[in-house]
Computed example of a mutant assay.
Amino acid sequence: MLILECPYCGIKGEETEFHAGGEAHLKRFGPGSSDEDFETYLFMRENPKGVHLERWRHANGCGKWFHAARCTMTLEVFGTYSAQSFEPPKEIKDILTAKRPGWSWRNFK
């Protein structure tokens, strides 16, 4: 079972306290984008064996969305951070690098 901490209200709880929202840091294309860009936004998702960045919502608490870095193999949670971030904060990247040398996810290293 995952244990997540909401970065907004500080509540730590089991994954049943939260609601998974899929992959984090997706780039949404606006009007006038190509069909290929829109198709990529709608259908192409990472499904890694290892480090993954995800969106979560504190459904049974403050109701806010946030991002979490975790390992899909071990269910280890490396940290959570604001959903308004364009990339994981340095502290989480440092934790990931220390625990999973050579990790990468999309354009993040």
Rank of each mutant, 00 (worst) to 15 (best):
residue 2 L to T: 10
residue 4 L to S: 12
residue 4 L to T: 10
residue 6 C to F: 10
residue 6 C to R: 04
residue 6 C to N: 06
residue 6 C to A: 07
residue 9 C to V: 00
residue 10 G to A: 00
residue 11 I to N: 06
residue 11 I to G: 02
residue 12 K to V: 04
residue 14 E to M: 11
residue 15 E to N: 10
residue 15 E to I: 09
residue 15 E to G: 12
residue 15 E to F: 11
residue 18 F to N: 12
residue 19 H to A: 13
residue 20 A to N: 15
residue 22 G to L: 12
residue 23 E to S: 07
residue 25 H to K: 08
residue 26 L to T: 12
residue 27 K to S: 08
residue 27 K to W: 08
residue 27 K to F: 07
residue 28 R to D: 14
residue 28 R to E: 12
residue 28 R to S: 12
residue 29 F to D: 04
residue 29 F to R: 11
residue 29 F to Y: 14
residue 30 G to K: 01
residue 31 P to L: 06
residue 32 G to W: 15
residue 33 S to R: 05
residue 36 E to G: 13
residue 36 E to F: 13
residue 37 D to C: 15
residue 39 E to Y: 13
residue 40 T to A: 14
residue 41 Y to D: 10
residue 42 L to P: 11
residue 42 L to H: 13
residue 43 F to K: 14
residue 44 M to S: 15
residue 44 M to D: 15
residue 44 M to G: 15
residue 44 M to R: 14
residue 48 P to D: 03
residue 48 P to E: 03
residue 50 G to T: 00
residue 51 V to T: 05
residue 51 V to D: 04
residue 52 H to L: 11
residue 52 H to D: 10
residue 54 E to T: 08
residue 54 E to A: 11
residue 55 R to I: 15
residue 58 H to I: 11
residue 58 H to F: 09
residue 59 A to I: 15
residue 60 N to I: 10
residue 61 G to W: 02
residue 62 C to K: 05
residue 63 G to D: 09
residue 63 G to P: 09
residue 63 G to E: 08
residue 64 K to Y: 15
residue 65 W to P: 09
residue 65 W to G: 09
residue 65 W to K: 12
residue 66 F to L: 13
residue 68 A to T: 15
residue 68 A to S: 15
residue 68 A to Q: 14
residue 69 A to T: 06
residue 69 A to I: 08
residue 69 A to Q: 06
residue 69 A to R: 05
residue 70 R to K: 07
residue 70 R to G: 05
residue 71 C to Q: 04
residue 71 C to S: 05
residue 72 T to Y: 05
residue 72 T to L: 05
residue 72 T to W: 04
residue 72 T to E: 07
residue 73 M to P: 00
residue 73 M to F: 01
residue 73 M to S: 01
residue 74 T to K: 03
residue 74 T to A: 05
residue 74 T to D: 03
residue 75 L to T: 06
residue 75 L to P: 05
residue 75 L to A: 04
residue 76 E to W: 04
residue 78 F to R: 02
residue 79 G to P: 05
residue 79 G to C: 06
residue 79 G to M: 06
residue 80 T to E: 07
residue 80 T to L: 08
residue 80 T to D: 06
residue 81 Y to G: 05
residue 81 Y to C: 07
residue 81 Y to P: 06
residue 82 S to Q: 08
residue 85 S to N: 09
residue 86 F to C: 11
residue 86 F to S: 13
residue 87 E to K: 10
residue 88 P to T: 09
residue 88 P to H: 09
residue 88 P to Q: 09
residue 89 P to K: 09
residue 89 P to C: 11
residue 90 K to W: 04
residue 90 K to P: 04
residue 91 E to C: 03
residue 91 E to H: 02
residue 92 I to N: 02
residue 92 I to F: 02
residue 92 I to A: 02
residue 93 K to Q: 03
residue 93 K to P: 01
residue 95 I to F: 02
residue 99 K to Y: 01
residue 100 R to P: 01
residue 101 P to A: 00
residue 101 P to V: 00
residue 102 G to F: 00
residue 102 G to W: 01
residue 104 S to C: 03
residue 104 S to I: 02
residue 104 S to G: 03
residue 106 R to H: 06
residue 106 R to D: 05
residue 107 N to F: 07
residue 108 F to K: 06
residue 109 K to W: 03
